[in-house]
């Protein structure tokens, strides 16, 4: 009994975890207009509908642009800050670190609301740019923390050696520090990308005409249950999984070697 019980629990837990995903993917192939049993598929017509939907396709592209752009900015700022704090004796460095990490502890809704108020006061129009700014705010602490944690002592001597051999500050960064920290920087970039790609509430509050994919999906939901939503959801899932597997294979596996 005690031998079977853990496995039974494992199966039940996996069943619970995969029940909604299974229903999502299965009924994306539904040959009918309701994504509920009985299953009449398989049919690819809802995927066709998604690919033909200009709004969805545009939103997907928008999401990709915002994700790549905001993650790149967050990574660059996070890396520089981590380098400054790890390699230079700064006054009040504990306070600086806390200030950089602070946005992580505040819910996205509040970050979005604050920016919405400020942009409204300043008369700045809402666009993909404003959403991107919001995404940098939430991803910067993450990128900073990941890269700062990876800045161990082992690079310090390599950096000293480079300086000793005549490299200036920026060349030390470009030729020694960045290559040595590449796994952590890439990991931070991928993780920030998946967060931005998936983020809803900030994008919802801070975009107007051009919207990101989660916001476009949100407006699809108003029409109730539809296999088309299943199809786009399954597509997003597959893309995210590919990103995660890419992270796993190219970053973590190499780091372990």
């Amino acid at each position: 009994m005690t031998r079977v019980l853990p496995w039974l629990y494992l199966c039940l837990a996996f069943g619970f975890i995969y029940l909604p995903v299974g229903a999502l993917v299965l009924f994306s192939f539904q040959d009918g207009s309701l994504p509920v049993p009985p299953f009449n598929g398989p049919s690819l017509k809802w995927y066709g509908a998604v690919l033909a939907d200009r709004g969805l396709m545009a939103a997907m592209l928008n999401s990709l642009v915002v994700a790549v752009g905001s993650s790149a900015v967050a990574c660059a700022l996070g890396f520089l800050a981590a380098y400054g704090l790890a390699r230079h004796a700064l006054p009040a460095s504990g306070l600086l670190r806390a200030a950089l990490i602070a946005p992580m502890t505040v819910s996205y809704l509040i970050v979005g609301l604050g920016l919405l108020i400020v942009f409204g006061r300043l008369g700045i129009g809402l666009s993909l740019w404003s959403a991107g700014i919001g995404h940098v705010v939430i991803n910067l602490p993450l990128c900073f923390a990941l890269i700062y944690a990876a800045m161990g002592g082992q690079q310090v001597n390599a950096e000293r050696a480079a300086r000793d051999l005549g490299a200036g500050e920026w060349r030390v960064l470009a030729l020694v520090t960045v290559p040595m920290l590449a796994p952590a920087i890439l990991a931070a970039f991928f993780l920030a990308m998946t967060f931005s790609w998936d983020e809803f509430i900030i994008a919802f509050l801070l975009t107007r005409f051009d919207v990101t994919l989660p916001v476009e999906i949100w407006s699809l939901l108003r029409s109730g249950l539809s296999p088309k939503t299943n199809a786009v959801g399954s597509l997003v899932f597959v893309i995210s999984v590919i990103l995660v597997l890419g992270l796993e294979v190219f970053v973590f596996r190499r780091r372990r070697q």
Partner: peptide, 16 residues
């Protein structure tokens, strides 16, 4: 793995 389904879509799947 299902962590990486879109957040909005995950709630929608429970509706299904």
């Amino acid at each position: 793995l299902p962590f990486w389904t879109s957040y909005v879509v995950r709630s929608y799947s429970w509706l299904l």
